[in-house]
Amino acid sequence: MCKRSAIMHTKTSMNTLVALLASVTTTTWISYDVILKTSICNKTRNGDQQRPKKRPREKTVHIGMSNRNIVTFSSTTYLYEQNTPKFPQKFIDDVRPIVSIDTALAEQSTLATLNAFHHARSFLMAALDQDQEQLATWLWTQKQHDITSREAKLLNMMKFILINFVDNCTATPISILNNTSTARKDYERTWWVRRVVPLFQTFGNQTGLLNFDWCECETTHHALEEMDLTIWEKGSSRFADGLGYDWNANERLVMEGSCGQHRESVSKTVDDSIKQLSSMIAMLKGIANIHLNARFDTMLRTKIFGVQSIKTSIVLSEVQFDENAKFSYRQVRKAEIPTSYKQRNKWLRVFELLAYLFVALDDQVVNMKQLDDEEDGAVNIPPQDTVRHKCLSV
């Protein structure tokens, strides 16, 4: 930029600043330095591109109060999904050559998976319309006819989970037992065991697709992934808050409880998010390691799942290979676990999450059968199409 152009650009920026100041009718002061820097820094040179996913800072205004405190006003672009797994941008950039991370939750406002189970959806809506005192009796007097075995499993899952919900709703609050309204314990394990574990244990019991170990479970594939191939020494052990094993005893779902019901430590959430992603990748590698002769296109459809609990929210994520033999992570469903009967409509999104996991795992049964057939030689696979060729040559 020439000197004359630079002078004109600065004047334009100052005129914009003056106009903004003139629009303020209160006696408060505005942070000149922040506004001027924001105005100038968000201009791009010809041919330059702004960094992706950078929030437009010009949509934030800082107002100084008479006591010299700063009040910030920001636009709706600063809305964000709360209580989700958290990955620092630097981490996302650092691991991009290995894994792509998509933290934008998939559109779930339509409850598409749950709505595909018409009988189960109707049953759930009717159940949520019951009074608390009547729900338990009502649940077990309902008979469903002419439904598939798949939908029957989902219905039974709903019944057992809602029974547990009613039981929790009748519990006497700890604050009453302690004769104080300020006693609020927030133990991470209490929330995990009382509210999260029953959901997924019932899921496994009723679908037959997962068996679980709970609380400080050692993951097998993490140590194998860190194997030092020069001396054949296994890596360090890693533990998870929950592990789900599929019908072939493969580690298929890894779970982390990052905090209790009321308070979140963001640094703990970040650590658990990164740890869980690493575990999911190790688990997918574990399946690939025993299917090196299978077709890579079949391996592309293989999924590993993760559940992270953050306050009252649970987030379901999945990891797959991509076409370049790298890894792809995305968050697919989020739900908030209801803790009182008046919150019972939150079960719609909880069962949407569970229905999604149910369908996805059911599809994996077929996928794993195909992988096994290809690995065992029952299906002829050209060498250039195998997992061995696609992954080991990357």
Rank of each mutant, 00 (worst) to 15 (best):
I161V: 12
P173W: 11
T170K: 09
F165Y: 14
T182C: 08
T170H: 11
L162G: 13
R194V: 10
R184G: 01
K159F: 11
N179Y: 14
N168T: 08
I163N: 08
R194C: 04
I161D: 08
D167A: 04
R194A: 13
T170D: 14
K185S: 10
R194F: 06
L162K: 02
D167H: 03
R189C: 05
L177W: 10
T170F: 15
P173D: 13
Y187F: 08
I163S: 12
M157T: 02
A171P: 01
T170E: 14
R195E: 06
C169R: 11
K185R: 10
K159G: 07
V196C: 05
K185Y: 07
S175W: 14
I161L: 10
Q201T: 05
V197L: 13
I176R: 15
R195W: 12
T180Y: 11
F160Q: 07
I163L: 12
T180P: 01
K185N: 05
N178L: 14
T180V: 10
L177C: 05
N164Y: 13
E188D: 07
T190E: 01
F160G: 01
K185M: 10
W192L: 01
A183D: 12
L177M: 11
M158G: 03
N156H: 10
T172W: 13
M157D: 00
W191T: 00
A183K: 03
L177P: 00
F160P: 00
V196L: 04
N178S: 14
A183Y: 11
N168I: 07
I174A: 13
S181N: 03
T202M: 08
N178K: 14
V197Q: 15
D186N: 11
P173F: 14
Q201P: 00
L177F: 09
N179K: 14
F165S: 02
T180W: 07
L162T: 03
F200I: 00
V166Q: 09
R184E: 09
P198Q: 11
V166F: 07
I161Y: 06
V197R: 15
L199F: 03
R184W: 07
V193Y: 00
N168E: 14
C169M: 12
N179W: 06
R184V: 04
I176K: 09
N179C: 10
N168R: 13
S181H: 08
T172D: 02
E188K: 09
T172N: 04
L162V: 01
T190W: 01
T172C: 08
T202F: 11
I161H: 06
N164C: 02
T182S: 15
V197G: 07
F165T: 03
I174K: 15
A171K: 15
S181T: 04
N178T: 14
P198D: 03
T190M: 05
I176P: 00
I161C: 11
P198A: 10
T182I: 12
D186S: 05
C169K: 14
